[in-house]
């Protein structure tokens, strides 16, 4: 009974933490744009949270710079279980144009496990919503 309730509430209110690991800001503003009236992800119960301790889903942008690596791991560990990671943008997936640069690790999945990849450079807000909904479907099944 209790597990059913937590499962249901998890599906209805995934709280997200937005984390920039060296992105060019384009994906970040598109993630924020997804929260604003035109796209409005709050209708799915999605709320942008300020601290990893409140979040269920980490929305990661950027190709993971060397200096962010330790911070990224720390933030991942601070997030309570069960936690999910969405890699937003081509950078977060593989490094995009920065691939091969000396200070870039080339993708979030080089550092922490990733559940959903959202492609695009930058991603459209619609794609961010699609990614979140896909994650929710993954949780249902």
């Amino acid at each position: 009974m209790l597990t059913k309730l937590t499962h249901w509430s998890r599906l209805k209110s995934p709280w997200i933490l937005h984390l920039n690991t060296g992105a060019c800001n384009a994906c970040d503003i598109e993630v924020v744009a997804a929260l604003t009236p035109r796209f409005d992800v709050e209708r799915f119960g999605i709320l942008l949270k300020a601290t990893p301790r409140h979040a269920d889903v980490i929305v990661c942008t950027g190709p993971a710079t060397r200096q962010m690596k330790d911070r990224l791991i720390r933030i991942y560990e601070q997030t309570p279980d069960p936690k999910f990671v969405i890699a937003v943008g081509a950078c977060a997936m593989s490094g995009c144009v920065y691939r091969g640069a000396y200070n870039v690790l080339g993708g979030i999945d080089q550092v922490i496990p990733v559940d959903v990849y959202v492609p695009g450079c930058p991603v459209r807000p619609d794609a961010v919503i699609d990614g979140v909904v896909k994650l929710l479907n993954k949780l249902k099944g």
């Binding site: 060296g22 800001n25 384009a26 200096q67 920065y98 640069a101």
Partner: peptide
Amino acid sequence: YNHRGLEKLAEQKTWIQNIYLTERICGI
């Protein structure tokens, strides 16, 4: 935290390729 080594990368790309690299210095 956000240093990606973009200027060094620019030296390995052609003039045309660099347009798309400089575009990705900043998204806004």
